[in-house]
Amino acid sequence: MGIEILEFDSEHAVARMPVEGNTQPLGLLHGGAYCVLGESLGSMHANYLAQQGGEGRFAVGVDINATHTGSATSGWVTGTARVIHAGRTLTVHEIVVTDETGRRCSTLRITNVIREPK
């Protein structure tokens, strides 16, 4: 997929992904590629938050949805994941994916459940 992490801290995570190599037959960035970028960012950040609550805690995704409102055809897209909710057992992130002009192409929401070590 060619995903590159650009920023990662307690508040957000940012990564970019090339359009080339991730397109569907019409030459548009594949909707599934937006989902891979969004789920990667949201899940990594949820796991970061889970580990802040204690050693061995981990997050697993239970829901993801995406609304594609634009179509990238070249260059790179950038995803920014921000925490909507960070509780003891559940996290929710919104991921906004934009093209190189800053135009929003996709908005995703992912919910992760935080598990305790056995």
Rank of each mutant, 00 (worst) to 15 (best):
S40G: 12
G102T: 07
N65P: 09
N47P: 00
T78C: 06
M17I: 03
Y34D: 07
E20I: 11
F8A: 15
L28W: 09
T69K: 11
G70W: 02
V14F: 04
M44N: 06
C35Y: 06
I114D: 00
Y48R: 15
M44P: 00
S43N: 07
E55R: 12
H68M: 10
R103Y: 06
Y48S: 13
I95W: 04
G54I: 01
L29P: 04
V83I: 15
M44I: 15
T98M: 09
D99T: 03
V62K: 08
Y34N: 10
M17C: 02
R103W: 04
A33N: 03
G42T: 08
S10H: 14
E94F: 01
G38W: 06
L41N: 06
S74F: 08
E11N: 13
A15G: 04
E7C: 07
A86I: 02
P25Q: 01
L26A: 13
Q24C: 01
V19D: 07
T73Y: 04
L28H: 11
A86S: 13
V92T: 11
G61E: 05
T101S: 14
A46K: 04
A86F: 03
G75F: 03
V113G: 03
Y34I: 08
R109V: 01
N65E: 00
R88I: 05
T67C: 14
H85I: 01
R57V: 09
T101K: 14
I84H: 10
V14A: 00
I114C: 05
E39Q: 09
A86W: 03
Q52A: 11
